[in-house]
Design a protein around this nucleic acid. Structure first.
Length: 330
DNA sequence: TTCCCAATAT
DNA sequence: TATATTGGGA
């Protein structure tokens, strides 16, 4: 199907940026999910009950063609390296919107917890341009999603607060995979973000995660493999990759919690490959050697707490989900 | 401009 | 707690 072709093209793009590791690509590619494994973008992911519960207008059905076209838009955007715009705005967002006809952003917006009088937070906290999208972009976005958000004025107006990204095991895996492919040297936020190609993922998101990830790796080196201690270890070292069943069910979702708003489920067309041997940069060595799995035996790469996952799936699974970021694979 | 990193905020 | 934001040097 065309999907696979696109995937390949995507890989090509990635390669272009680094200079080409064919074998790695094939390896990576082999780990990629097949078309059958992916959740069709045209598929409605929000159950009617859920939708109504959160005032989400039913998603308009999208034909495969439409979805495809949207995907292409995304792809071309990626290729064009229109890095001047963030994922939340314009192109990427547009494709996201068109693709799923959902309210990706609407999800999180919700209430502005920003207390008005909270200015007392000490020295030097000025009102910063909170990550909202500028008016212009805002309008554009509104226009784009007008069809589905028409019913919820409040959401359209304030929809622009960025949701907090939740690094799910899948998302992290993807992150790790990309870092591994790039090699620690070229694994910089911007590049990682681009290669991850996840909707809504910002450079900041990646930078923050990368920072933490590096810290983790650093510690792993300093400390012996034995328990660095706690959360961090769990976060990064544990093997996340949840059972496939979970992957299918929730499909690697990058969760984004709406501030105070109940999150909604969004499909993630990026089911992580069953097993991708990806050396997660062995700090200090192996630069670009992606194909080599000879990383440290205590290689810390997979992480993330599973806690949310299992619970989400079990407890909320059928009832509530979360909004998340969708990787634009294709 | 982007990166990196520590500190700090939410 | 996890993630976001900030500030400042590179």
């Amino acid at each position: 199907m065309g999907e696979e072709v696109k995937m390949t093209e995507y890989q090509g793009v990635a390669l272009d940026q680094n200079g080409g590791h064919d074998d790695r690509v094939s390896e990576w590619e082999s780990g990629l999910p097949g078309a059958d494994d992916l959740t069709p973008l045209s598929q409605t992911l929000i159950p009617p009950e859920l939708a109504s519960a959160f005032s989400i207008s039913p998603e308009p059905y999208r034909t495969a063609i439409e979805v495809n076209r949207a995907s292409q838009t995304t792809l071309s955007t990626l290729r064009g390296q229109h890095s001047s715009k963030g994922f939340w705005s314009s192109d990427n967002f547009k494709s996201f919107d068109e693709t799923r006809g959902g309210d990706p952003m609407v999800v999180e917006e919700a209430d502005e917890t920003t207390d008005p009088d909270g200015s007392g937070s000490g020295s030097g906290s000025e009102p910063r341009k909170s990550r909202r999208i500028d008016c212009a972009e805002l309008e554009a976005d509104s226009a784009l999603r007008a069809e589905n958000s028409a019913d919820d004025p409040s959401s359209a107006a304030r929809t622009l607060k960025r949701p907090r990204l939740v690094w799910t095991p899948q998302l992290h895996k993807r992150f790790v995979d990309v870092v591994g492919h790039l090699g620690i040297k070229s694994a910089v936020p911007k590049t990682i973000m681009q290669l991850m190609n996840v909707e809504g993922l910002t450079r900041e998101n990646v930078a923050s995660h990368l920072q933490k990830y590096r810290l983790y790796l650093k510690r792993m080196h300093g400390l012996s493999i034995e328990g660095p201690s706690s959360s961090e270890h769990q976060l990064f070292a544990s093997t996340p990759v949840p059972p496939q069943s979970l992957q299918e069910a929730a499909a690697g979702t990058a969760l984004v919690h709406g501030n105070g708003h109940v999150p909604m489920p969004i499909p993630m067309p990026y089911p992580p490959p069953p097993m991708m041997p990806m050396p997660v940069l062995g700090v200090g060595h192996m630069g670009m050697s992606v194909g080599s799995h000879g990383f440290d035996s205590h290689n810390p790469y997979n992480m993330m707490q599973q806690r949310d996952w299992s619970e989400n799936n079990n407890a909320y699974g059928s009832m509530v989900s979360y909004p998340y970021v969708v990787p634009n694979d294709k």
